[in-house]
Design a protein around this nucleic acid. Structure first.
Lengths: 109, 109
DNA sequence: TGAATATTCAACCATATGGTTAACAATAAG
DNA sequence: CTTATTGTTAACCATATGGTTGAATATTCA
């Protein structure tokens, strides 16, 4: 089993635990965007979005490039990949688990 | 893109954001265990472990079977699979992202 | 210079974690 | 019946989120 840095996964999974932040990432996968552009589809205040972006930034999920007065935000791949890798270690477990579920369903029919 | 239920992912990623809880899951992947067995390797109080297990339970990551005075905890696959699936939607992005990194490194050499 | 725009920061509030210790409940065993 | 054992619950404390509104900052534009 691969070893994963503790606190990075903490921050990554913590950042992913909020639906607004997951929506921001889903927007950013389409390409870079400014804070204002990111905020527009959401009903909460710009300040709230700003705080969400700071959390994503601290988790390394996002990078910020200042151009004049606008901040351009872009998605950063590696923490997502790490989280994916961590979960992947459980793949055997759920394969097995779903197989035995399938087995149960089969025996029932 | 597949749609994912909002609040379930909230709870799943939230539960995964703590290293103690991730360690509990890593133990449980080896098989069912009692609360006491789960607590033993950790230095924090049993009450703290009990609360962690409740959070895992609320997130559906774990099930509890009471046998007499002991509680037997077992891992539940599907929320992990859902989280894995959500992250998998970003696979194209990080493939591309890592490719372009590789490209950069190549051009530099 | 002065006004508009893009964002952050500060202060505040409510709720959730993450931990503690102490008390309670339920079951097992002497 | 009394005492251990296994866990949960309660009360408490500190810190992080998630949101608000209002003020401060930094650019850009007229």
């Amino acid at each position: 089993m691969v070893e994963y840095s503790i606190s990075e996964l903490d921050a990554t999974f913590g950042a992913l635990s909020d639906p607004t932040r997951r929506a921001l990432l889903a927007t950013l996968v389409l390409g870079e965007a400014t804070v204002g552009e990111l905020a527009r589809p959401h009903e909460i205040s710009l300040a709230a979005i700003s705080k969400h972006i700071q959390i994503l930034e601290r988790a390394g999920l996002v990078r910020r490039r200042r151009i004049g007065r606008t901040h351009h935000i872009s998605l950063e791949a590696s923490p997502l990949l790490d989280a994916f890798g961590w979960l992947g270690a459980y793949q055997d477990f759920w394969d097995e688990s779903l197989d035995s579920l399938a087995g149960l369903l089969e025996r029932r029919s």
